[in-house]
Design a protein around this nucleic acid. Structure first.
Length: 336
DNA sequence: TCTGGGGTCCTAGGACCC
DNA sequence: TCTGGGGTCCTAGGACCC
């Protein structure tokens, strides 16, 4: 059951956005197809990428059709494509193309915005269609009677400043349809985290610790799989009333080891949670990432022993599934 | 209305160092 | 000893995106 993948084009940039069910495999296959067309591909999420097709001989619409045909014939995955002279407009064109497709099936839409038509394309759209304007900002703008991007286009810069603060000059450019960011390599991931919302709020410290350990191990395993380590360990906690807090700590050295992440996260839990307080959600994350380099001189026996053990456990989990080795117990109050 | 999960980026304040 | 500025790092929270 496919999800979605998207693609986008510019003056020739294109945004492609697709629908897939299985994350990395389908994502990689789609990106492989895109990379076959041009090396100028920037993957921006699991199911979306920018392409700079300026140097290709065909016009954008033909390229977009070709991409849809290739992805569908090889992978049976639909995708929506927007094309424009810059990334911002290509992205919004993809969104509008996708949402204008009224059908139970996944959209296979294409929308190309010609060079010079960026501003008029944006004008009638609701402000929420603009990248960087979310529900909170939409609500604020509507209170001032600002509903469309066209309304924003006509606003004096001083008023923009009052609404958007330091972001005003950037937003003023965006609403005019201007964007000069090149299609480039995606910077890579900045953090790895896992969190869980409990079926019922948890008050029991032992169960919270089991959850923290389970999530820490999961994060550590994902880091090792990517060959990454991180210096900052973060704990996220949400109370019964939905109030959410974060606590973080920075280590002397980057890590991807279960024991280090577990002990850091446990300390953070103790710093914020009081016995008996109901917890709705808990999460563990690691940021400040870097590629893992093992400096042998710094490794002691205990470290090497744990590393060998973790490598073996990772191998078993990879081969036989995550339940094959149970060092801890997965909390049974996790939402399925 | 009753709220999932995994991310990015920005801001603001405080600590620390030179 | 005090003052101040500037830079950097850390922490916490929020908005936004897919």
């Amino acid at each position: 059951m496919p999800m979605a993948q998207a693609l986008r084009l510019c003056p020739d940039l294109i945004t492609v956005r697709g629908h897939f069910n299985s994350y990395s495999e389908h994502s990689q296959m789609v990106m492989d197809i895109l990379s076959g067309l041009t090396p100028l591909v920037e993957q921006i999420s699991i199911d979306e990428a920018f392409l700079d097709v300026t140097d290709l001989p065909e016009e954008s619409y033909r390229i977009a059709e070709n991409i849809q045909v290739q992805i569908y014939s090889k992978l049976e995955l639909p995708c929506s494509i927007g094309g424009a002279s810059n990334k911002l407009i290509a992205k919004i064109a993809t969104n509008t193309a996708k949402s204008s497709h009224r059908s139970d099936t996944y959209p296979m839409a294409i929308r190309i915005i010609p060079f010079g038509k960026e501003k008029s394309f944006l004008a009638p759209l609701q402000v929420g269609e603009m990248c960087g304007i979310g529900p909170k900002s939409v609500a604020l703008l509507e209170k001032s009677g600002i509903k469309t991007i066209g309304d924003l286009q006509n606003l004096p810069i001083e008023i923009m400043g009052k609404i958007f603060g330091n972001f005003a000059s950037e937003m003023a450019k965006r609403v005019q349809g201007m964007d000069d960011r090149p299609v480039g390599d995606y910077g890579g991931i900045k953090s790895v985290s896992n969190e869980v919302t409990f079926r019922q709020d948890i008050r029991d410290g032992i169960e919270l610790l089991r959850a923290v350990r389970y999530l820490s191990e999961k994060v550590a395993r994902r880091l090792r799989k990517k060959g990454l380590s991180g210096r900052t360990v973060r704990l996220k906690i949400r109370w019964k009333n939905f109030e959410t807090h974060m606590r973080q700590t920075t280590l002397d050295q980057p890590t991807n080891q279960d024991s280090v992440i577990i002990s850091s996260a446990e300390k953070l839990l103790h710093s914020i949670w009081k016995e008996g307080k109901p917890v709705r959600l808990i999460g563990v994350g690691v940021s400040g990432l870097d590629e893992t380099h093992y400096q042998l001189s710094l490794l002691d026996d205990a470290y090497l022993t744990e590393k060998r053990l973790l490598d073996a456990v990772d191998f078993l989990k990879e081969k036989y599934g995550s339940d094959i080795v149970k060092k801890g117990i997965k909390p049974d109050n996790f939402r399925s």
